[in-house]
Design a protein around this nucleic acid. Structure first.
Lengths: 196, 196
DNA sequence: TGATCACTTGACACTATGTCAAGTCCGAAT
DNA sequence: ATTCGGACTTGACATAGTGTCAAGTGATCA
């Protein structure tokens, strides 16, 4: 989509992210977004082809804005493994509620939007892999296992793995719940030594 | 709502549950439901005041139909604690995907439906308490702890506790993510002895 | 035969998305 | 100073879904 005025485009994206984060869900209207951005409803279509296009763009905008990679990377300031893990958990817990409502609104759109669905599926896949890679890095650094009881680490990291996957795998990708639990178990066993 | 013909009402509820489970999400229309139930669109309104009313009724219908309490209760046939836990996990993993899409469709409805939102909040609260009570019973029976490594039980049960709470607590009830993590941690520590 | 109940049919108001055409405003080039 | 073009506004419209209403049908029961 061409972008007449980049500033206006940014304001639209910010307005969308704000309204969705405030809990509007699918109920957020194009007119609400336009009003929040301080432009007319029709002007939104000068920047984005349709609602789906805007929502997908918003997920990437949130990433860009918050510099997620930096937030999810292990903090260099923290000294013990426990501190680094806590920092990771906090970053993730702050990131997820920003990105999640947007994805939900996307997935719940009209079933005719197959394009939007698959775009979001790819997006969630990326997020999951990024999360698993960050956890792997935490472990490979040798900073996690020594400073922390294995059982506690496992509990916390299951939380992180679970949240962004449930809806994606069972609905968008057609995984069964059984497959999902199997995947979670396998991932946890791979990343941490459970009962070994 | 008065129910002209109970059979028709049942067919509507079954059609709604089926369509939502098949992944239609918020995109499931009243006309789709009517078609699946084999009646006219307008006839649905003879049984349910509106879309929200129908969705809420569907959550209770699923419970009634599947006899959830029986499925979530520890299986008497299973002998070891591990077997009973596995049965519980399987029952829960089968129940959740049936009830969850309906709740999602409810939460994502137009933000004007405050009534529907609070009805669903109560519904989720009940589910969470039911889940925690079932887990408590498993533990109180003394069948869980002895037969099973504590770390493995914790991993599995965190999965069960997490899923139905995330959306409910952080969106519908206005909990922050920090409050949510704290609640999960406290519950897990209360139900199982972690690091003690 | 006549009445009632469950449902149908067709029409309507309302709201949200997305499109279109014409108009306004403002800054930059000539 | 005037003209031009781009960004946005305004108003109108087509389309689709929800919810309402009034009239009609068809089977069952008194």
């Amino acid at each position: 989509m061409s972008s007449p005025n980049p500033d206006t485009r940014q304001r639209i994206l910010q307005a969308t992210a704000d309204l969705l984060s405030e809990g509007g869900g699918t109920g957020v209207r194009m007119s609400d977004i336009a009003k929040r951005a301080g432009i007319s409803r029709q002007a939104v279509y000068l920047h984005f082809a349709n609602r789906a296009d805007l929502l997908i763009a918003t997920t990437f905008y949130v990433d860009e804005l918050k510099d997620t990679a930096a937030r999810l990377a292990p903090s260099r300031a923290a000294e013990t493994g426990r501190e680094r893990l806590d920092a990771f958990v906090e970053a993730w817990a702050g990131y997820l509620p920003e990105i999640y409502p947007i994805g939900r609104a996307l997935i719940d759109m009209s079933p005719t939007d197959e394009e939007a669905r698959s775009a979001w599926a790819q997006r969630m896949q990326d997020m999951r892999e990024g999360c698993e890679a960050a956890i792997s890095a935490l472990k490979r650094d040798g900073d996690l296992a020594p400073g922390l009881p294995a059982s506690q680490a496992t509990d916390l990291l299951w939380t992180l793995l679970l949240l962004p996957n449930w809806e994606h795998l069972t609905r968008t990708c057609g995984w069964s719940q059984k497959q999902y639990l199997k995947h979670i178990t396998a991932t946890a066993r791979r990343l941490f030594v459970i009962d070994a």
